[in-house]
Amino acid sequence: MELVTPGIGLLFWQTVTFLIVLFLLGKFAWKPIMNALHEREASIENALSAAEKAKLEIQALKADNEKLLAEARLERDRILKEATEAANSIVEASKQKANEEGARMIAQARESIENEKRAAITEVKNMAASLSLEIAEQILRRELSDKTAQQALAQDYIREVTLN
C-alpha cells in the first residue's frame, strides 16, 4: 500500500515545487499573458467600435446618396418641365406666326381680288361705253343718212327741250 499513499516528504517537496512554479509563472508568465489578453481585448473593442463607426458612416453616406438622388430627380424633372414649356411656347409662337401670316396673305389676296374686280368693272364699263357709242354712232348714221330724217329728229329734240 505504500504505493498508493504518498509520503510526507514527497508531499512537502511537491508543495514547495508547486509554489515555486506558481511564483515563477506569476512573476514571468502571468503578467505577459494578461497583458496580451488585455491588448487583444482592447484591439477587439477598437475593431468593433471602428466597425460600428464605419456602419454609421455607411448609413450617413447612403442617406446622402438618397438625398443627392432625390435632388437629381427633382432637377431632371425641372429641366424636363422647362424644356416642355419652351417647346410648347415655340410651337404656340409658330402657330400664332403662321396664323398671322395666313391672315396677312388672305387680306392681301382679298385686296388683290378687290383691285382686280374694280379694274375688271372699270374695263367692262369702258367697253360698254365704247360699245354704246359705237352703236349710237351707227344708229345715228343710219337714221341721219337722209335729210328728212335729220329734220324730224331735230324737231323731236326741240320739242323735248322746250317741254322740260
Rank of each mutant, 00 (worst) to 15 (best):
I79F: 04
E111V: 02
D64N: 10
A149R: 09
F18I: 06
G26N: 14
A63S: 04
E160L: 15
E160S: 15
G102M: 04
I113F: 07
I33K: 08
L22P: 00
T15A: 14
L80D: 09
R118K: 15
R40L: 07
E75D: 05
I106S: 08
N126I: 10
S43V: 13
Q96N: 06
E111Y: 05
K117S: 05
E116K: 11
E92H: 03
Q108F: 04
R104L: 10
I158Q: 15
E57A: 13
A152V: 07
M127F: 15
A70Q: 07
A152D: 06
E57Y: 04
A50I: 04
K62V: 00
Y157M: 11
A98D: 09
A50H: 03
V124S: 10
E52Q: 10
E41P: 01
L80W: 03
I90P: 00
E123I: 01
P32M: 04
E92D: 03
A86P: 00
E2F: 08
L80P: 00
T17C: 13
K31C: 04
L22W: 10
T148G: 02
A98V: 10
L61N: 03
L133Y: 06
N164D: 14
D146R: 03
E52C: 02
I8K: 11
N115C: 11
W30N: 02
E123N: 13
L68G: 01
S112M: 12
K55E: 12
L131I: 10
L163A: 15
L24V: 15
M34G: 02
L133P: 00
E114Q: 14
L10P: 00
N164M: 10
I106G: 01
A51G: 03
L74V: 03
P6Y: 06
N65Y: 01
A87I: 04
A50D: 11
E57W: 04
V4T: 08
E71A: 11
N65G: 05
E111F: 07
E92L: 09
D77F: 02
E137Q: 11
K31L: 05
E123L: 09
R141K: 15
E45H: 07
E137A: 11
D64H: 01
R110M: 08
V91H: 11
E2L: 10
I90F: 09
W13D: 12
K27C: 06
M34R: 12
E111R: 13
A60C: 01
G26W: 04
S112A: 15
K95R: 08
E52K: 09
A98K: 13
T15W: 09
M105F: 05
L61C: 01
G102C: 01
G9H: 06
A154C: 13
L24K: 11
K125Y: 09
S145G: 12
H38C: 08
I113D: 15
S112L: 12
N115D: 10
A129M: 08
E143Q: 05
V16M: 11
N65K: 06
A154P: 00
E41N: 12
K97Q: 12
L133T: 09
Q150S: 07
I8A: 09
Q59I: 01
A42I: 05
A98W: 06
R110D: 10
L140S: 11
S43M: 15
Q59C: 01
G26Q: 14
T148Q: 06
F18Y: 14
N46V: 02
T5D: 09
D156K: 07
I8Y: 03
L22C: 04
E101Y: 01
S89R: 15
K55S: 10
L68E: 08
S130D: 14
L69M: 05
